[in-house]
Nucleic acid binder design. Structure first.
Length: 772
DNA sequence: CAGTGAGCGAGCTTCCGCTTGACTT
């Protein structure tokens, strides 16, 4: 709904967001009407290229169907207004929105008032209204260049993929780099060779005190193998230990800056396990309720008002020594800073009412904002160096003492790494030269671990570092690359391995321990198609998916803004070589779908086992001889053409297999286009739920699934309810709950009604209402 | 939907960035 006051006033202000329109409307009062454009009102056609390649890349803009209504409303308001201010956001896109508004509303570009709000306060808004500027056409040109470039890349590259790889695929300046990051991370993990080493940790206590005072210290060197570790412990066994040095250094820890879109996504992901889109949905609803500032921002800036309120609030809650007003500046590449950082609208509200996720996200934003205005924490870091009498290296103990907690009282940013921190280690009061006794010294076997795969927020973080994508596109980009099948978001359970520990107390004992490792939750894995598309783009369009491509074109957009170059000239310079590469890829390269990896030889038949992409996706194949047909099997989820082993491949041919008997017929397990299935009784099929593995399912489980499906079918075919007075109306069970069926047509039951209790009258009403 | 691994060949798919609703068989 657009915010239009009942009586249109002669002063019209147009902003982008309806929520913002509402707030500003309150500040401006009855004399002003504040409308919102709800983002862009015009765009290139969705179906065609929409760019005139023969005339300076002139864009052909249209008003999309879903924007027709809003444009009509804006036209109406503009007709009645005497004064119009265009108050879209202060960035490239906002400037373009203002320009499109002049074009659609027939306003003169040179004289139409253009304003921006830096703060949503009465004085800031009135000041802006009184000091309007005009539209910066260079900035608009830079936006057109950005739009045209993205369209040219997307709409010329994608069709190449349709011809060379598979229909309906897509490529673009942002999404293709996101996929590349994920593919390269996977390759890094594939080529990773784990190494083992030994880490030595001792528990010491001062001579003459009790062993319960023992503190941890780590040996300064890592050892390569068990023999070395054993030799060291043997030496230390009869050694004396002297404190050779103690140093206490006061250190300061500063709070993190207030949230941007990307840092909010990261912290909500780490602390609550929220996906990027969950975070954004929740933030959107907080914004619409007026509880937080705008949630799509790359700025860490807080308004003076917010800084002052934070100061008051901190003084009141914790005392003046906890307050430390700070201004933060944005460093991230390509930031446009049209908004404030994400913060609570009213810092006096520590908590809010709302859904569980709204409450916890709000509380996180509140804490982070407050902490950003609090004093640094002061921590004394003590380092104790311990020298053994018969070894050249030393042991090092590190302990942190919080002298003043400062912002830590409220908030601590979580980290992505799993490394142990040195916090909360209490070191005893000891002096240089003092003797220590060891309680135990343990050498444990460790494995180096490969880089961890991206999850949604860490991918966003990486993209932001590279300056690729914008706060409004981070979440949609992830959705796109998953939807195209380039990437899977899944979890991997932990694996177990045995590790060796050498424990020295009086004697040296060798122990075997179980260690779990490699568990990954909600990580982004590349698929075969993602890998193939990426490799194709890398060979033929390496400049487009270069990590610096966006940064380079951004520099050129800046040149457009500064008037150094015309926008169509910049596009022209890009387009000719790009288009040549496209033509070249289409004409000279042969079809790419037969990239075959020979895995090995099938020991039974002696024939080659190969992996490739088939009509229905990745598969393995055992070639036939002469008349003999080849055998095929689809790859399981998570298996890649690049890495599948011969053993894994041969296992895939175990299907279809006869599992047992049911009602005198064979029960066969197979795997088809739509996943695993059970076949029995000749033609009765039952799909396996995704949680069942067709390779390990038991006959009992299969039978119970068959019976469950029979029951469900019966239930579905039977109407849930019917009415003797009118047999034409029935209430049935459907995929989305109950629905009403009448004369071959189906009708939805409104949310406030229950199918179990509907009367015939109510059903008829629903039917007649929906016909309107 | 149908439980396979082509060859009659229509007509379609696709980008990035602004912003919010619409609404299932």
């Amino acid at each position: 709904m657009t915010y239009i006051q009942p009586t249109m006033s002669k002063n019209l202000v147009i902003v982008e967001s309806p929520t913002k329109a509402k707030t500003i409307g309150k500040f401006l009062g009855n004399e002003y009407t504040v409308c919102s454009s709800k983002g862009h009102i015009r765009d290139l056609s969705k179906k065609e290229l929409g760019i005139n390649l023969n005339n300076k890349y002139e864009p052909e803009y249209i008003i999309p169907a879903e924007k027709k209504k809003i444009v009509a409303e804006l036209k109406e308001a503009a007709k009645k207004a005497e004064n119009i201010w265009l108050a879209s956001d202060e960035d490239r896109e906002g400037e373009a929105i203002a320009w499109h508004l002049t074009q659609v509303l027939n306003l003169p570009v040179e004289t139409t008032k253009r304003i921006v709000f830096h703060e949503i306060t009465s004085s800031a808004i009135h000041e802006a209204i009184e000091n309007p500027k005009t539209i910066n056409c260079h900035l608009v040109d830079a936006q057109q260049a950005r739009r045209v470039l993205d369209r040219l890349v997307g709409f010329e590259l994608s069709p190449v993929l349709w011809r060379k790889v598979r229909p309906s695929l897509s490529a673009g300046r942002v999404q293709s780099v996101a996929v590349r990051l994920i593919v390269e991370k996977e390759r890094e993990i594939i080529s990773f060779k784990p190494k083992t080493y030994y880490r030595v940790i001792a528990l010491f206590y001062p001579k003459g005190t009790s062993a319960s005072n023992a503190f941890k210290a780590e040996y300064s060197k890592r050892l390569e193998n068990k023999e070395d570790a054993y030799a060291l412990l043997e030496r230390l066994r009869n050694s004396n230990f002297i404190v050779s040095d103690i140093e206490t250094k006061p250190t300061k820890r500063n709070p993190a800056p207030p949230f941007t879109t990307s840092t909010l996504q990261q912290d909500a992901g780490r602390k609550f396990g929220m996906s990027v889109s969950q975070t954004m949905q929740t933030a959107q609803s907080l914004y619409e309720k007026g509880l937080i500032t705008y949630m799509r921002t790359d700025s860490v800036n807080l308004s003076s008002l917010a800084i002052n309120t934070a100061k008051e609030q901190i003084n009141k809650m914790f005392g003046e020594q906890y307050s430390s007003p700070r201004r933060y500046t944005t460093h991230s590449k390509g930031a446009q800073e049209a908004h404030e950082a994400i913060r609570p609208s009213y810092l006096s509200n520590e908590t809010i009412t709302g859904s569980a996720s709204e409450q916890k996200l709000y509380s996180l934003i509140w804490k982070r904002t407050m902490a950003s205005q609090m004093a640094a924490a002061q921590i004394d870091r003590t380092t104790i160096i311990i020298k053994p009498s018969n070894d050249d290296n030393c042991f090092i103990a590190v302990g942190d003492t919080v002298v003043f907690d400062g912002f830590l009282k409220l908030y601590q940013e979580s980290t992505d790494s799993t490394e142990e921190s040195s916090e909360d280690v209490v070191l005893p009061k000891i002096n240089t030269g003092e003797s220590l006794i060891y309680k135990e010294i343990v050498a444990s076997e460790k494995h180096t671990s490969p880089a961890s795969r991206y999850n949604e927020p860490t991918l966003v973080k990486k993209l932001e570092e590279l300056g690729i994508g914008r706060p409004s596109t981070f979440a949609p980009t992830i959705t796109t690359i998953i939807k195209r099948g380039y990437v899977d978001k899944t979890s991997k359970p932990a694996q177990k391995r045995k590790i060796t520990e050498l424990v020295l107390t009086k004697e040296i004992q060798e122990k075997q321990k179980d260690e779990s490792y490699g568990a990954e939750k909600n990580r982004l894995f590349p698929t075969d198609i993602g890998i193939i598309v990426n490799d194709y783009l890398e060979t033929h369009f390496c400049n487009i998916i270069d990590y610096n491509f966006t940064a380079q074109v951004e520099e050129q957009f800046d040149d457009i803004v500064n008037g150094k170059i015309k926008w169509y000239k910049m596009i022209d310079d890009f387009y000719h070589p790009f288009h040549n590469a496209v033509e070249n890829a289409i004409n000279t390269q042969e079809k790419r779908d037969q990239q075959v990896r020979v895995i090995g030889i099938d020991p039974k038949s002696g024939h080659e086992v190969k992996a490739r992409i088939g009509k229905y996706g990745p598969m393995v194949e055992i070639s036939g001889e002469g008349e003999e047909k080849p055998k095929f099997a689809a790859l399981k989820k998570g298996q890649l053409i690049e890495t599948i082993t011969l053993e894994e491949a041969l296992n895939l041919f175990a299907l279809p297999r006869v599992l047992g008997e049911f009602e005198g017929n064979d029960v066969v397990i197979g795997i088809g286009r739509y996943g695993g299935y059970i076949r029995h009784n000749n033609k009765e099929f039952t799909s396996l739920p995704k949680t069942e593995d067709p390779y390990t399912i038991t006959i009992d489980k299969a039978i119970s699934l068959i019976e469950a499906q029979r029951q469900a079918k019966q239930k579905a075919s039977m109407p849930a309810r019917s009415f003797p007075e009118d047999p034409s109306i029935e209430i049935k069970h459907g995929r989305y709950g109950m629905y009403i069926a009448c004369n071959g047509k189906n009708y939805r039951i409104p949310k406030d009604k229950k199918g179990e209790s509907l009367t015939l009258e109510e059903c008829r009403k629903i039917i007649t209402n929906s016909k309107k």
